[in-house]
Design a protein around this nucleic acid. Structure first.
Lengths: 122, 122
DNA sequence: TTAACTGCAAACCCTTTGCACGGTG
DNA sequence: CACCGTGCAAAGGGTTTGCAGTTAA
């Protein structure tokens, strides 16, 4: 599945490369759309999908919000969600000696911390 | 805004009272629908909404999934999500000495832990 | 009786898909 | 020139709303 190098795809990749945080489809449309005027939301979704399949992007799921996407990170992504702007940021808490107290019958695979408050762009 | 005591509303409240975990609208429809055969999904949504407004229910937002609802809890709700059944459970980890390492410019309001693995009903 | 509630279907929002046109290689 | 990718519009899934009929009080 070869990929063609279109203006749209380039602008979308640039948006992710320049953003310092995970982006939702609409945010991508706004950022990339500034460079490619008639960019359609369907194109954004299709490019995100193909970038995901090629591991050039990674999904970042958010409680009660649309899925965001980012350039892949090795470690699990812990989040800080701005309650004012709704923007999502990645943080790196120390979860090492976390006491989970899971009841019997629960088998842990992984844990993620989600923080809420005001972010740097609030 | 007085509330009438309908079979539908009673069955929906019963579903939440009996469930040991947060429920999504479809789960409520299945549980309450067993008692009230022609129960419609719109009725479930409307009752959830009015129960939320009366603080008889609380929303539980989940990453990349539909919002679940539960009878309100005083403490912040930390979650365990079963990767097999998609069911959501409430857990009570010790987050006391958690080191957040938030960068400057971030103002923390609250933190929530979300665990993934296999739950008791998997 | 009568106003609130329900069920059905249509409306909405976000995401995906179909199709004809346009642009890359 | 052959196709893939794009834009537009329609189709899908989950949630909300409009409306006429039903039911609690």
């Amino acid at each position: 599945m070869q990929q063609r190098d279109t203006r749209q795809r380039a602008a979308i990749k640039r948006a992710f490369a320049q953003a310092q945080r995970p982006l939702g489809p609409k945010e991508v449309l706004d950022l990339a759309g500034a460079e490619v005027p008639k960019l359609g939301i369907a194109t954004v979704y299709r490019n995100i999908k193909s970038l995901l399949e090629q591991d050039e992007l990674q999904a970042v799921e958010v409680p009660g919000g649309q899925t965001r996407y980012q350039i892949p990170r090795a470690e699990r992504t812990h989040l800080f969600i701005c309650q004012k702007t709704d923007r999502v940021y990645v943080i790196q808490p120390k979860l090492d000696e976390l006491q989970l107290n899971l009841p019997d019958g629960y088998q842990l695979q992984e844990a993620q911390l989600i923080c809420y408050g005001l972010g740097p762009e609030a």
